[in-house]
Design a protein around this nucleic acid. Structure first.
Lengths: 414, 414
DNA sequence: CTCTTTTATTTCGAGGCTCGAAAAAAATAG
DNA sequence: CTATTTTTTTCGAGCCTCGAAATAAAAGAG
C-alpha cells in the first residue's frame, strides 16, 4: 500500500528480494553477478548473501563452472538451496485432481493425480480427497527434503482477489470454498488458491519472458472461457474476485444461453459446448451439458477442416465472438500480445480469419494489425507451472525476504 | 517497480510522503495527530516536521483552534505552507481552454479562460494560445505567491500512459502533441497531461472519499464517451495509452458508424451525436458532426420527457448500449460504483431503466442488483479539480517528499 | 501564587541499513 | 616466487526509526 509506513529493515527486505529473484531467474550466480544484476554495492551483496547462507536459503555451489580459467580470484557460484523448503501445487479441474511436490529449486520430488467425481462431491468430501493426496505426497518425501512451506492451488472457477477462497466453480455444486484457509490450517503453511487462467499467465511469463513480459493476455478456451491478464508487469485481479471473466463479456445482447445463466456471453458462442451446440443445429437456448468429451470436439474440428458443411461456420462464429471480445478488451487496456490456451487453441486455424477480421480496423491511435497470437493447446502443464512459480515466488518475496526466521528448518517441523 | 533497489533514505522519503498527505487530507494537524494518522513514532514525526518546517514546506499555524482548553501542553497546529509553491491547471476541450493558478494549499490565485478554434489550429498555434494564457496568469501572481512547480493538463482525448503526450484528440487535427514535454521545457517545471476522465475520477475520489475509494468508474457522457477507472485505490491506465476507452468497446458487431471510423462502438449509440442521429431517423452510417450544440441536445431530452415519440426510444437505445458496456466491464473488473458525468448524466432518467435492465441478471458470483450510479451533469469543475489534485499530489509525493532540495524557493526563480 | 498533574514535543542512544574505500583472498602470468 | 588481476570481505561514515528519558507548556489544586 502507498499509505504504509517504512522502516529501516524494509530496505534489507527489499534488497534480499532482489538478490533472491535474481538467483531464481538465473540459477547460478556469483556475488559479482548479483552486483551486476541488482545494482547493489558489493558490500551490500556480501552482507545479504552471508546471511542468506547462514540461514540455509542459498548455498555455495562448489564446482560451479562460472567463466572458469580467467585471471584473478575465481567467482564462487551461489544457488538456491533446494532442500531449504518444499512446496505443493494442486491443480483442480472437472473430475480430476493433480498434485505435485517440488523442492525450493523447482525440481519435482513427488507427484500424484486422481480422477474424482467432483460434480457429485460435497466440499467436505473434496477436501478429504485432497488431504489424502497431499498426505501421501508428504509421506513419500525422501529424507533431506525441506519442510513444506507453501501450497498453491489452481482451480477452474472464480476465486477471490486475495487468493483465499474459490467463490464459484462449474466443477462442484458448492460455492465459497475456503481452500486457502483450510489447507493453511491443516498443513500449517501459507496456502493460496487462484484461477487457472492466472496460473497460465504466470507460467507463460516465466517460460517466455522475452515475449510475455509487461502486458499480455492468456485466454483459456475450453469448456469455459477464462483469461489471465498481466498489465504493467503485475497480474490483474478485479475489485473483489479474480475477475477478468473474458468469457462472460457480452457479445450479443439477448443472445445464446450461457452456462452462467445469462444470455449472449462470449462463452455461449466460443466454448466447446457452444460450438457443438451450433453444429448440432440446436436452439441457442438449449442448456449446455456439464461436460464435453474431448474426442467429440476434436472430431467436429476434423470435419470442419475437411468437409464444407456447417461445422466450419460454427467455428467461424466462435472466432467472431472471441474477436469481438478482444476488440472490447483492447479498447479498455490497449492491444497486448495474446496467448490462446487449451483445446480451443488447437482449432485456432478454423477461427483465425474471422477473429482477426473483427478486431482489425484500427481506431486512429491503437493499431492491431500486427497483433501477436500464439497457441498452446495443452493447458495442464502451464497451470501446474504457474502454481509452482506462485509458490516459489511467495517463498522468495514473502517468507525468505524478511529474514526474521532464524532457522526456517524449524519453523514447521513437519 | 518491484525490481528497484532500496536505500536507507527511501525510508524517510516514504514517511515524509505519509506526513504530507495526512496534512493534505486534514488541513490542520498537530504533531500528535500526525503520529495517530500515520502510525509513526513521535520521535520520527518530530524529525520529519522539523525538516519540513525548515524547508518552508509546512508552517506552524499560531491560533490554530486544536481542541483548545484541555489540560497539558497545547498542541501546535501544522499546515501546508500555501506560499511554498504554486501550480497551474489547464483544461483543454473543444474550442475552449481554461487555466487556473493555485497555491500549494489548493486556493485559487488567478484564473483565465478563452474560446479558441481548436479544430482549425495547428499544434503550434494551440501552444501559442496556451503559452499566452499561462504567461498572463504568472504575471498576475501577487507577490508572495510561491514559484510555479507543476502544470497539469486535462484534455479531451487519448493520452499516453506516462502523462507526457496527447496521442489523439477529436478537438484538433494534430496527433501526438507532446504537451508534457513542451510545457515542462518552457516553464522549467514538471508537467503532465491526462485524459479528462481520469481527472474526473481523481476529483471524485477527493471530494467523496467515502463513496469513491478503492474501486469505481467515472464515465463521461458527452460528445464522446470516456472513462476514468480506479482499481484497488490506483488509477487504471492501459499498456501504453491512458486507455479505458469505454466508448469504443464493441456493442453491436458491424453496427452504427462511430466517430473513430469503426462500427458498432458504444459511443455510436450513446453519445450526444449518436442519440440525435437516431432521433433524426438518419442512416446509422451517416458520419457524425464534429460538434453538437448543447441546447439542441437538451431540447431533444425535453421532448423525450414530455412527448411519446421517437425521442424516448433513442435515449433508451443509448441506455442499452451503456448497460451492455457496463456488463462487459463488470465481467472484467467486478461490479464497482459508477459515476455518470457530463450532459449525458443529465438525461439519465431517460436511460436508467434500460441500462439497469441489460446489466441485471447476476451470474452466480457477482451480483449487480444494488449497483450504485450517481450523476454529475457538469463535468468542468471536476476536470479542473482533478488536475489540481494531480498537481498537488505530485508535489507532495514526488517533489517535496525526497527532501533533497535544500531551498525549494530557489529551485526555479521564476 | 506555587506546586502538581497532564499532555505535547524534543533529545539521545541503540540498532538497522547502504555505500565507498581499503584490505584480504585466491587465482593466473611471467 | 613474485607481480598482477579479480573477487569478496571488512570497516567507518552517514542515513534511518524507535523507545525511553528529558523538556516544555498548559490547567487544576491547595
Amino acid at each position: 500500500m502507498i499509505d504504509e509506513i517504512a522502516r529501516p529493515d524494509d530496505v534489507r527486505r527489499q534488497n534480499r528480494r532482489l538478490a533472491l529473484t535474481a538467483l531464481r531467474r538465473h540459477g547460478l550466480l556469483s556475488r559479482t553477478d548479483i552486483v551486476a544484476q541488482t545494482g547493489l554495492s558489493p558490500s551490500t551483496v556480501s552482507a545479504i548473501t552471508t546471511s542468506l547462507i547462514s540461514e540455509g536459503i542459498i548455498i555455495e555451489a562448489r564446482e560451479g563452472d562460472l567463466g572458469s580459467n580467467r585471471r584473478g580470484r575465481p567467482q564462487i557460484a551461489l544457488v538456491l538451496n533446494p532442500d531449504v523448503a518444499s512446496v505443493v501445487t494442486v491443480e483442480l479441474a472437472l473430475n480430476f485432481v493433480h498434485a505435485v511436490l517440488y523442492d525450493y529449486k523447482g525440481q519435482v520430488v513427488a507427484e500424484i493425480s486422481e480422477r474424482v467425481p467432483t460434480l457429485e462431491m460435497s466440499a467436505d468430501a473434496l477436501f478429504q480427497s485432497i488431504f489424502a493426496m497431499l498426505d501421501s505426497l508428504i509421506d513419500k518425501r525422501p529424507s533431506g527434503t525441506g519442510p513444506l512451506m507453501h501450497i498453491s492451488m489452481g482451480v477452474q472457477g472464480v476465486t477471490d482477489a486475495t487468493g483465499a477462497t474459490m467463490l464459484w466453480s462449474p466443477i462442484t455444486p458448492d460455492t465459497n470454498i475456503a481452500f486457502g484457509k483450510v489447507l493453511s490450517r491443516r498443513y500449517g503453511v501459507d496456502a493460496s488458491v487462484a484461477n487457472d487462467c492466472n496460473m497460465i499467465a504466470e507460467a507463460l511469463r516465466w517460460t517466455d519472458p522475452e515475449h510475455y513480459r509487461e502486458n499480455f493476455a492468456a485466454i483459456l478456451l475450453s469448456h469455459g472461457i477464462g483469461m489471465g491478464l498481466y498489465l504493467k508487469g503485475k497480474p490483474f485481479v478485479g475489485a473483489h474476485s479474480s475477475a477478468a471473466e473474458f468469457g462472460h463479456m457480452l457479445h450479443i445482447p439477448k443472445g445464446a444461453l450461457c452456462r452462467c445463466g445469462r444470455r449472449g456471453c462470449i462463452e455461449a458462442y466460443a466454448s466447446d459446448y457452444a460450438i457443438l451446440r451450433t453444429i448440432s443445429g440446436e436452439n441457442e437456448s438449449t442448456p449446455p451439458p456439464q461436460d464435453i468429451d474431448p474426442s467429440t470436439f476434436a472430431a467436429a474440428a476434423g470435419r470442419a477442416r475437411t468437409g464444407n458443411g456447417d461445422e466450419g461456420a460454427a467455428f467461424r462464429k466462435a472466432g467472431q465472438a472471441i474477436g469481438a471480445g478482444l476488440r472490447s478488451l483492447f479498447s479498455l487496456i490497449d492491444p497486448v500480445p495474446v496467448a490462446l490456451v487449451g483445446p480451443g487453441a488447437g482449432v485456432f486455424d478454423l477461427m483465425e480469419e474471422e477473429l482477426r477480421g473483427v478486431i482489425s480496423g484500427n481506431s486512429g491511435w491503437g493499431a492491431t494489425q500486427d497483433l501477436s497470437i500464439r497457441c498452446y493447446p495443452d493447458e495442464h502443464p502451464l497451470i501446474v507451472q504457474g502454481c509452482l512459480m506462485t509458490s516459489l515466488l511467495h517463498l522468495d518475496t514473502q517468507i525468505f525476504a524478511p529474514g526474521d526466521l532464524k532457522d526456517p528448518q524449524l519453523k514447521h517441523a513437519l
